[in-house]
Design a protein around this nucleic acid. Structure first.
Length: 160
DNA sequence: GCCAACGTTGGC
DNA sequence: GCCAACGTTGGC
Protein backbone atom coordinates (compact mmCIF):
# COMPACT_ATOMS: atom_id res chain seq x y z
CA UNK A 1 0.00 0.00 0.00
CA UNK A 2 1.20 3.45 -0.85
CA UNK A 3 1.56 5.84 1.98
CA UNK A 4 -1.44 8.12 1.83
CA UNK A 5 -0.55 10.70 4.41
CA UNK A 6 -1.29 14.17 3.20
CA UNK A 7 -1.15 16.42 6.21
CA UNK A 8 1.80 17.23 8.40
CA UNK A 9 2.90 19.42 11.23
CA UNK A 10 6.32 21.00 11.31
CA UNK A 11 7.84 22.62 14.38
CA UNK A 12 10.07 25.63 14.39
CA UNK A 13 11.40 27.92 17.04
CA UNK A 14 10.14 31.39 16.14
CA UNK A 15 13.42 32.85 17.33
CA UNK A 16 15.21 31.06 14.52
CA UNK A 17 12.47 30.90 11.87
CA UNK A 18 8.88 32.03 12.41
CA UNK A 19 5.66 32.06 10.41
CA UNK A 20 6.36 35.74 9.77
CA UNK A 21 9.68 34.83 8.19
CA UNK A 22 7.87 32.31 6.00
CA UNK A 23 5.26 34.88 5.05
CA UNK A 24 8.04 37.24 4.02
CA UNK A 25 10.05 34.59 2.16
CA UNK A 26 6.95 32.97 0.56
CA UNK A 27 9.01 29.83 -0.07
CA UNK A 28 11.65 28.14 2.03
CA UNK A 29 13.39 24.81 2.36
CA UNK A 30 12.73 23.19 5.70
CA UNK A 31 16.29 22.58 6.83
CA UNK A 32 18.03 21.43 9.94
CA UNK A 33 15.96 18.37 10.77
CA UNK A 34 18.41 15.96 12.42
CA UNK A 35 16.22 13.12 13.57
CA UNK A 36 15.92 9.92 11.58
CA UNK A 37 12.20 9.42 11.92
CA UNK A 38 11.53 12.98 10.83
CA UNK A 39 14.12 12.56 8.07
CA UNK A 40 12.26 9.54 6.75
CA UNK A 41 9.06 11.56 6.51
CA UNK A 42 10.85 14.30 4.61
CA UNK A 43 12.63 11.89 2.31
CA UNK A 44 9.91 9.32 1.67
CA UNK A 45 6.45 10.39 2.64
CA UNK A 46 5.87 14.09 2.22
CA UNK A 47 4.49 14.77 -1.24
CA UNK A 48 3.98 17.78 -3.42
CA UNK A 49 0.66 19.41 -2.60
CA UNK A 50 0.56 18.10 0.96
CA UNK A 51 -0.47 20.67 3.51
CA UNK A 52 1.49 21.53 6.61
CA UNK A 53 0.55 23.05 9.94
CA UNK A 54 3.31 25.35 11.13
CA UNK A 55 3.98 25.08 14.86
CA UNK A 56 5.98 27.42 17.06
CA UNK A 57 7.85 25.60 19.80
CA UNK A 58 9.67 27.18 22.73
CA UNK A 59 7.39 30.14 22.17
CA UNK A 60 4.99 32.25 24.21
CA UNK A 61 2.71 30.68 23.78
CA UNK A 62 3.68 27.60 21.82
CA UNK A 63 1.09 26.53 19.28
CA UNK A 64 -0.05 26.27 15.69
CA UNK A 65 0.35 29.54 13.85
CA UNK A 66 -0.45 28.89 10.22
CA UNK A 67 -0.45 26.72 7.13
CA UNK A 68 2.02 25.98 4.36
CA UNK A 69 2.02 23.75 1.32
CA UNK A 70 4.68 21.40 0.02
CA UNK A 71 5.91 22.47 -3.41
CA UNK A 72 9.01 20.30 -3.76
CA UNK A 73 9.55 16.81 -2.42
CA UNK A 74 12.53 15.55 -0.46
CA UNK A 75 16.05 16.35 -1.57
CA UNK A 76 19.37 16.43 0.31
CA UNK A 77 19.67 19.11 2.96
CA UNK A 78 22.28 21.55 1.66
CA UNK A 79 23.02 22.88 5.15
CA UNK A 80 24.49 19.48 6.06
CA UNK A 81 27.23 20.07 3.46
CA UNK A 82 28.05 23.61 4.57
CA UNK A 83 30.84 23.76 7.14
CA UNK A 84 29.72 27.24 8.10
CA UNK A 85 26.18 26.15 8.88
CA UNK A 86 25.12 25.28 12.39
CA UNK A 87 23.50 22.22 10.80
CA UNK A 88 26.72 21.01 9.18
CA UNK A 89 27.19 17.25 9.46
CA UNK A 90 30.45 15.86 8.16
CA UNK A 91 28.97 12.36 8.05
CA UNK A 92 26.53 13.42 5.33
CA UNK A 93 28.03 13.31 1.83
CA UNK A 94 26.62 14.39 -1.52
CA UNK A 95 26.91 10.78 -2.68
CA UNK A 96 25.13 9.41 0.34
CA UNK A 97 23.16 12.24 1.90
CA UNK A 98 21.93 11.65 5.41
CA UNK A 99 19.52 14.55 5.83
CA UNK A 100 16.69 15.82 3.67
CA UNK A 101 14.51 18.87 3.22
CA UNK A 102 11.32 19.74 1.37
CA UNK A 103 10.32 23.10 -0.04
CA UNK A 104 7.23 24.66 1.42
CA UNK A 105 5.25 27.72 0.43
CA UNK A 106 3.41 30.09 2.72
CA UNK A 107 -0.37 29.66 2.63
CA UNK A 108 -1.75 31.55 5.59
CA UNK A 109 -1.04 32.85 9.03
CA UNK A 110 -3.80 32.38 11.58
CA UNK A 111 -5.36 35.53 13.03
CA UNK A 112 -4.77 34.02 16.42
CA UNK A 113 -2.40 31.31 17.51
CA UNK A 114 -3.96 28.00 18.48
CA UNK A 115 -2.01 27.49 21.64
CA UNK A 116 -0.88 24.14 22.88
CA UNK A 117 -3.23 24.66 25.81
CA UNK A 118 -6.18 25.20 23.44
CA UNK A 119 -5.24 22.09 21.49
CA UNK A 120 -4.98 19.93 24.59
CA UNK A 121 -8.38 21.06 25.81
CA UNK A 122 -10.11 20.24 22.52
CA UNK A 123 -11.75 16.80 22.65
CA UNK A 124 -11.87 16.76 18.84
CA UNK A 125 -8.10 16.55 18.86
CA UNK A 126 -7.83 13.55 21.14
CA UNK A 127 -5.15 11.22 19.84
CA UNK A 128 -3.32 13.88 17.85
CA UNK A 129 0.36 12.90 17.60
CA UNK A 130 1.53 16.35 18.58
CA UNK A 131 -0.20 16.06 21.92
CA UNK A 132 1.40 12.78 22.93
CA UNK A 133 3.45 13.15 26.06
CA UNK A 134 7.14 13.37 25.35
CA UNK A 135 6.55 13.89 21.63
CA UNK A 136 9.69 15.55 20.31
CA UNK A 137 9.51 14.89 16.59
CA UNK A 138 9.83 18.08 14.60
CA UNK A 139 7.93 16.64 11.62
CA UNK A 140 4.72 14.78 12.36
CA UNK A 141 1.82 13.32 10.40
CA UNK A 142 -1.59 14.86 11.08
CA UNK A 143 -4.86 13.10 10.29
CA UNK A 144 -7.24 14.74 7.85
CA UNK A 145 -9.86 15.01 10.56
CA UNK A 146 -7.49 16.83 12.89
CA UNK A 147 -6.11 19.03 10.14
CA UNK A 148 -9.55 20.18 9.06
CA UNK A 149 -10.64 20.73 12.62
CA UNK A 150 -7.60 22.90 13.30
CA UNK A 151 -8.38 24.99 10.23
CA UNK A 152 -11.95 25.36 11.43
CA UNK A 153 -10.89 26.47 14.87
CA UNK A 154 -8.43 28.95 13.42
CA UNK A 155 -11.03 30.61 11.22
CA UNK A 156 -13.54 31.14 14.00
CA UNK A 157 -13.98 34.69 15.11
CA UNK A 158 -11.51 35.60 17.82
CA UNK A 159 -12.36 34.94 21.42
CA UNK A 160 -12.80 37.96 23.56
C1' DG B 1 16.63 27.52 34.43
C1' DC B 2 14.64 22.95 35.47
C1' DC B 3 13.80 18.56 34.07
C1' DA B 4 10.96 14.66 31.80
C1' DA B 5 11.16 12.16 27.98
C1' DC B 6 13.05 11.04 24.68
C1' DG B 7 17.25 9.72 20.85
C1' DT B 8 22.17 8.65 20.04
C1' DT B 9 26.65 6.88 21.02
C1' DG B 10 29.95 3.69 22.24
C1' DG B 11 32.06 0.24 25.47
C1' DC B 12 31.56 -4.33 26.37
C1' DG C 1 22.55 -6.76 21.57
C1' DC C 2 22.55 -4.47 26.08
C1' DC C 3 22.58 -0.38 28.50
C1' DA C 4 24.88 3.61 30.85
C1' DA C 5 26.17 8.02 29.78
C1' DC C 6 25.33 11.80 27.35
C1' DG C 7 22.89 15.17 24.36
C1' DT C 8 18.57 17.32 22.79
C1' DT C 9 13.80 18.87 22.72
C1' DG C 10 10.52 21.61 24.43
C1' DG C 11 6.96 22.51 28.09
C1' DC C 12 6.75 24.93 32.09
Amino acid sequence: MKNQKKYWLMKTEPGSYSIDDLQKDKITFWSGVRNYQARNFLRDDIKKGNEVLVYHSNAEPSGIVGVAKVIKEGYPDPTAFDPKSQYFDETSSMKDPRWFVVDIQFVKKFDQILSLQDLKMDPMLDGMELLRKGQRLSVLPVSEKHFLHVLGQASRSPKR
